[in-house]
Design a binder for these strands. Structure first.
Lengths: 135, 135
DNA sequence: CAGAATCCAAATCGATACTG
DNA sequence: CAGTATCGATTTGGATTCTG
């Protein structure tokens, strides 16, 4: 009846699809590991535990806000463990959990794929750009 | 001398790091595959070639703009191939290249990891949220 | 030291309408 | 059919400042 029915249906489909995507484990994982700082933090911690400020120094360019935010979400997902030593001043260490180490392995697989195929991708890009430039 | 020296140095570090991250193959790959629509498109095409509108229908909720944009960047990277059949009306088919199929395998590996560990992640989340709620 | 809170600029995404 | 162009809403990330 209403003239908005079609639009409403599309909107509904979109919302449902959004929910589906957000609940999809694969997508959740993809979103997590592709976060700008996650792979850097995980690979830094793969070598051993580190203090907050050490991470901040090792990963130059990260703001305290993003470092904390990323670390918190990784902690929540059980990927890193946070240990507070109540000295003065306080000392906080972060380290990978077993799950985190496992994730680190997956990241290594991704890294290997990237290194094996980056050349091919770059060639494709050059070809594409060259033919586009001929506009 | 200047009071801005420290800030400038931080800024410089950030810019350099940004450049480093952007040029890093692993990060480029991560950014690409975690794009909201990429994994959906690649897995849809893994089953065979598809027309533009078929993709749009299969992946409900994607706008023409995002579909085109995603497809174009995948084409540029040599992951999908675009074939135009100049009939009336025109017909455009998309399919995975060998590189694209290879990527599809990596995506499968990621998917497997996600499915194997999602439970563990969810438990960690519940635990974390439960202890946070006790605030 | 390790972070929390606030503010703001920039990039992103989607809806919509139009075209060859 | 297969897009392109434009605009507005939303999200995101960073700088900055402050605190236990």
């Amino acid at each position: 009846m209403a003239t908005t029915t079609a639009a409403q249906r599309r909107e509904k489909a979109r919302v449902e699809y959004d929910a589906f995507i957000k609940s999809c484990p694969t997508n959740q994982l993809l979103v997590r590991i592709s976060d700008k700082w996650v792979s850097l933090i995980v690979s830094a911690l793969a070598e051993g535990s580190m203090r907050y400020s050490d991470l901040g120094r090792k990963i130059a360019g990260v703001s305290p806000k993003m470092l904390t935010q990323t670390l918190r979400s990784l902690e929540r997902d059980g990927i890193v463990a946070r240990t507070v030593t109540p000295s003065v001043p306080v000392r906080v260490d972060y380290e990978l959990t077993p799950l985190g180490m496992n994730l680190s392995c997956l990241l290594t697989a991704v890294k290997d794929w990237a290194e094996q195929h980056i050349e091919e991708v770059n060639e494709a890009r050059d070809r594409y750009d060259a033919s586009s430039a001929a506009s």
